[in-house]
C-alpha cells in the first residue's frame, strides 16, 4: 500500500514535469489533436457516404455503427493518452540504448516508461469518442441502466488494458530483435478491423481479431452489449478475463526482456 502511494506520488511529479515541457509547444499540441480528430471524422464521413446507398449493414443501422465506432475510440484513446511511450521502446529506445536510464533508477521499469509521457494527441480520439457516444445516448439507441453504466466504465478500463498489453507485448520483442516497431505497428493497426461488426469478416479473420489479437473485445463486442438486449453481461466478463490474461503475458515478456536487454554500442 505504501509502495502504491509512493508510485502515485512519483507519477504525479513526473507527469507534472512532462507537462511543463510540452506547455512550451501549444501549436504542436493543437496540430496533434487536430490530426487524430480529423482522422476519426473521416471514418464517420465514410460511413455516412456508404449509408447513402444502403438502408442498413447486415442488420446494423448507421446510428448503431456510429456508436460502435465512437465507443471503439474510448479505450483506444485512454491507452494512447497514458502509455504512448511504449511505442518508443519498440522503435528506438532499445536499439539506441536510451532504455539504460530506466535500468538505473530504483523504480519499477514499466512504471518509468509510462510515467515519462502523456500523449495529448489522444484527446483527438477521446473527443471523437465522447461526442459520438453522447450523440448515441441522446438518440436513445443505447441501453441505460445501472448495470450497463457500471459495465460501460469497466469495459473502458479492460479495453484500455487490452490495448496496452498488445502494445507492450510487441514492443518487448525489441529486447530480442532490437527494433520491433513494424510488428508493433502491424498488431496495433489490426484494431481497425474492430471498428465494424465482426460478422462481416471471413471466419479466419474473425477468429484472429477475437482470440489471437483480441481487438474485437475492445470495441465491437462490448459495444454490442450496450446496444442490444440479447447480448449478456458475460461479454464484459470475458473482456475482463482477456484483459487480465493478456496483461500477464505481456508483462512477463517485458520483464524477461529487460533481463536480455543488450544496451547500445556493440
Amino acid at each position: 500500500m505504501n509502495q502504491c502511494k509512493r508510485y502515485l506520488r512519483l507519477y504525479k511529479i513526473m507527469i507534472a514535469q512532462f507537462l511543463k515541457t510540452i506547455m512550451q509547444s501549444k501549436v504542436d499540441f493543437l496540430i496533434g489533436l487536430f490530426g487524430f480528430f480529423f482522422t476519426q471524422i473521416m471514418g464517420i464521413v465514410f460511413l455516412y457516404l456508404v449509408f447513402q446507398q444502403i438502408p442498413n449493414l447486415q442488420g446494423w443501422t448507421f446510428e448503431q455503427l456510429i456508436f460502435i465506432y465512437g465507443f471503439a475510440q474510448l479505450p483506444r484513446g485512454i491507452d494512447h493518452l497514458f502509455t504512448d511511450n511504449i511505442w518508443l521502446v519498440g522503435w528506438r529506445m532499445v536499439i539506441n540504448g536510451d532504455f539504460d536510464r530506466y535500468m538505473l533508477r530504483p523504480m519499477n521499469i514499466f512504471f518509468q516508461v509510462i510515467a515519462e509521457k502523456l500523449q495529448p494527441d489522444a484527446l483527438g480520439e477521446l473527443l471523437t469518442g465522447v461526442i459520438l457516444v453522447a450523440g448515441s445516448l441522446a438518440k436513445g439507441i443505447v441501453i441505460v441502466d445501472i448495470l450497463h453504466v457500471v459495465l460501460f466504465f469497466v469495459s473502458l478500463v479492460a479495453g484500455a488494458v487490452i490495448y496496452t498489453s498488445i502494445k507492450l507485448f510487441f514492443a518487448s520483442l525489441a529486447f530480442w530483435m532490437k527494433c520491433s516497431g513494424p510488428f508493433l505497428q502491424t498488431a496495433y493497426e489490426m484494431a481497425d478491423f474492430a471498428k465494424y461488426p465482426t460478422e462481416i469478416y471471413a471466419k479466419g479473420v474473425r477468429f484472429l481479431i477475437t482470440w489471437v489479437i483480441p481487438f474485437a473485445f475492445v470495441a465491437y463486442l462490448p459495444a454490442s452489449f450496450f446496444l442490444k438486449n440479447d447480448v449478456s453481461a458475460g461479454m464484459i466478463g470475458i473482456e475482463c478475463v482477456i484483459a487480465v490474461v493478456f496483461w500477464c503475458i505481456a508483462y512477463a515478456v517485458f520483464h524477461r526482456g529487460t533481463h536480455v536487454y543488450e544496451s547500445a554500442g556493440n
Binding site: 456508404v50 446507398q53 444502403i54 438502408p55 442498413n56 449493414l57 447486415q58 513494424p182 510488428f183 505497428q185 502491424t186 493497426e189 489490426m190 481497425d192 478491423f193 465494424y196 460478422e199 462481416i200 469478416y201 471471413a202 479473420v205
Partner: peptide, 25 residues
C-alpha cells in the same frame, strides 16, 4: 514484409466491408 501486411489490412477491411455493403443493398 510487415508493412506490406499492414497496408494490406486496410484493403482487406475494405474488401469485407464492401462485400457486406453490397449484400445489404
Amino acid at each position: 514484409y510487415l508493412f506490406i501486411l499492414v497496408s494490406l489490412f486496410s484493403s482487406f477491411i475494405s474488401y469485407y466491408l464492401w462485400k457486406a455493403i453490397y449484400t445489404s443493398s
